[in-house]
Structures are given as C-alpha cells and as structure tokens.
Nucleic acid binder design. Structure first.
Lengths: 224, 224
DNA sequence: AACGGTCTGTAACTAAGTCACCGAGCGGGC
DNA sequence: GCCCGCTCGGTGACTTAGTTACAGACCGTT
C-alpha cells in the first residue's frame, strides 16, 4: 500500500507501514498533522497534550526546571521517534511534569487517544514500537541518573561537547546553555571550559565553542 | 468469578479481576507463582527476567551501582504493584541495567511474555494497569533526577528519614545504607546525622536512627 | 558614539564528596 | 570471660562543585 503526495508522512515510520491495511487507513485518516514554530511549549505545566505524538521533523527537548531556576535536559525526541514516554505519562497519571520545548520548527502526527488505544490493542507491531521507545527512554533516564549522581562534571561536559559537536568543530551554545544541558551552574561550566582551553583542547568565544583536540576530550569523556 | 484456596492470588490485584472470564482463566492457569528468599537478585547484570512480574508479597529494591561502588536506589516495587518498567525495559531493549534485589522474602506471579502480550492486546483494563504503573514510575524517576541534581543533601536526607520512619520513630539502617539510598557518601551522611543530632532532632546509635523531632525534619524536608 | 541587554570572568565563600586513618562496638570461637 | 576480626562510625585535610555578588566585555540598535 502506498500513499502519495502531501499526505504521505508514513515513510518516516517504517514500522507503521507493517500495520494491517485496515488499521493503516484508520491511522492515516484519523491522525492530524500539526506544525509548531521553534520555541513552542508542547507540553508542561499548563499545556498537557491530548494526543500521542509521532515526530516527523525537528526535535523536541524535554527538560526540567528547579525552583531556583536551574535546568536539566532529560532527553530529546528526534524525527522518526515518538514522544511515547512523556505523552503516556502525562495522559495516564497527572501529577508532576517535565516540559517539552520545540527546539526547531516541528511537524508531527497527532494521534487521538482513542486511536492510540485501538492500535495498541490490535497491532503487535505497534506495541513493539511503543514499548521499544519506552524502554529506550527509560534506559537513558537510568543512565542520566547515574551520571548526575556519580560522574564528575568535567567528564560530563566533555561528553556533552562531543555529543553536540558530531563531526563539526563548532558548537553554538552559551555557557548557560551548556549548564542547562547538564543541570549544572554557568560559573562551573565557564571554569571547566577555561581549563579545557588552557590545555589547548578547545577555543571559546562568545556563544561558541570550537573543539581543537577532540581525542583529548574523548579520552576524558571515557572517564580518563 | 471466584477462585478458592491456595491458587487465589488475584485478590492482590483487584484490577485484574475485571478481566473477561476467558482471559482471567488463562492468566490464572498460565502464570506461575515464584518465591524468592530475601536478598535474591531478581534481575540485573547476568540475570534478566524472562517474564513479567506481579508482586504479591514483599518489596523489591531497584538500584544502580557506579563503577566506584557508590549506589543509589531508583525505586521500590511493593506488593500489589508490577515490575512493569524494568521488566519491560529489560525485555525490550537490552543494553544497560539496573539491579533488582528482594528486600524481603518475596512471592510473585510470573507471567510468561506471550501471555503478557496477549493481555495487553485483549484487555483495556490490563493496558490501563500497565500504563498507569509505567507512568507512575517515570514520574518518580523525573522527580529523582530533579532531586539528585538540585536538592541539598540535608533536605534529601530529612525526606528519606521521614519516608523510612512512617509513624515509627526507629529506623534500622547504617549510615552506609542511607548513603546508598540517596546516592551519596557515608561520611557525608554521618556528618549530616551528627548535625541533626546536635540540634536535637534525632539520636543515632550503631545501626539505628531514632527520630525525636519529626516536625523539625518535616520542615527541612519541605525545603525549609 | 552611546546604550541596554546578553554573555563571560573572577573572587570569596559554602556544600558535597574523597581519602586516609583510627577507634569503638559487636559477635563468635576458645 | 577474653581475644580476634569485622563492621560501623568519627575525624581531619583536601578536592570538587555550586553559590553569591560583582565587574567588565561584547554586540546590535539607535
């Protein structure tokens, strides 16, 4: 089965194409494509989602803010992934909330709750899809807890810089941005960056970090 | 529908009694009751579960250990709850692991994976049960991350002491135990306890903490 | 060129974690 | 009882992380 033109968003979710024909049609027809500008708050205090989201384009940053204003990024949802975890949580058990922010302009399929339930009920493939996404997220949350609790900040910063660099050398982020990623404080990050710069591993300029010696960072990141 | 005698474990899970008769019978017949002594490792490096657990009696402690040997308790599974999160994770996406330890002698229903899948597929009630458990756990993980990242250790210790006390005054735990609960270090906990004792909030003896002024602890616990 | 906002640097301080060591308490074996 | 060994807790010196309170640099706008 093929769907053509503007309607065909299903290429982004190969797994869903394995659905039985009937369900596939339901999914295509009952789902809504939503677009949101960069910076939108997708969910969080005051803005609970009423549907299950499949992200087509863009990235969603899920983060938490403390009373004192410090932030930490919990995870990101990329194109081709579902917002399973947070969505299901917010749908299922209202109580406490993380915040989902569109990091870029995003396009997503919003699946009504009833359809989500029907799909879970009727498709082994869809269940697999959802549970795999869940478990990957939870795995990462476990890792995050371990890192926040036990890992040194210089190691975590090195990891994060490498993660943000991905083959580029320039990272566009303020020290505050990096602190928010790690749940640390700006001054702490500034000091660490100065130290890295002193060792010749990188250069800092207003709003950017340029990686010079990636392998040194990699070594530190692996608990060097 | 009623089941009598030794077989009837379903009273612990009222929700499951709402299942359609046919499924209920399947569940009862295909599930196995397992018993494990205190201290057993239920899952973790080297011991993955092959079934979904519903806990009838006892508590399971889910924790993580760092390279350096420091530990942190992620959550506990109590009687009447499912091990949904970790189980599903370990089943779904093998990679990283927390460790599940029987804190007491435990009795649980082990549901084969195939049955779990069948129940998810066929029962709205069961889906609700599983997803609610999931979302509650994830909510708590989010809270844990926030606390580890942003909360002062004295506040966290006060919270933990109150949680462990639950209307009793005596807590049987070594300083190391308390440190493991919070993902902190023994010396840090010892110092905090000394300080609490100095203020007359509690008394410490080898292996126990006796709470004297619960309200002072409560006040601190609420970020006093 | 002046201005206001954002971003970064710095110093002094507190909190948390680490390291190394010691001694107290406790239980078992004799 | 007494000794031995182990667990548990206390302590001081030190490092790392986070906080507070600034000051100054940078940048786009007017």
């Amino acid at each position: 089965m093929q769907i053509d033109g503007a309607q065909d968003w299903t290429h982004a979710f190969p797994l869903l194409r394995q659905l039985p024909n009937e369900l596939f049609v339901q999914l295509r027809d009952a789902s809504l494509i939503v677009e949101l500008p960069e910076g939108s708050r997708i969910f969080g205090p005051g803005q609970a989602p009423d549907s299950f989201l499949l992200l087509l384009d863009g990235t969603i940053r899920v983060q938490q803010t403390s009373e004192s204003g410090r932030e930490i990024v919990l995870y990101r949802v990329q194109a081709g992934e579902s917002c399973a975890l947070t969505t299901a949580c917010l749908l299922g058990y209202e109580d406490y909330q993380a915040e989902g922010i569109a990091e870029t302009r995003i396009r997503a399929v919003a699946m009504p709750r009833a359809l989500f339930d029907r799909l879970i009920a009727s498709s082994r493939e869809f269940r697999q899809f959802v549970f795999t996404a869940f478990s990957r997220r939870v795995t990462n949350l476990f890792r995050l807890i371990e890192e926040v609790a036990f890992q040194r900040i210089d190691v975590r910063l090195a990891q994060k810089l490498l993660e943000l660099a991905v083959s580029r050398q320039h990272i566009a982020a303020t020290h505050q941005d990096l602190a928010n990623e790690l749940g640390s404080a700006r001054e702490v990050i500034s000091r660490q960056l100065s130290e890295f710069a002193r060792r010749g591993w990188l250069r800092v300029a207003r709003g950017t970090v340029e990686i010079i010696d990636g392998s040194a960072l990699t070594q530190l990141a692996r608990h060097g």
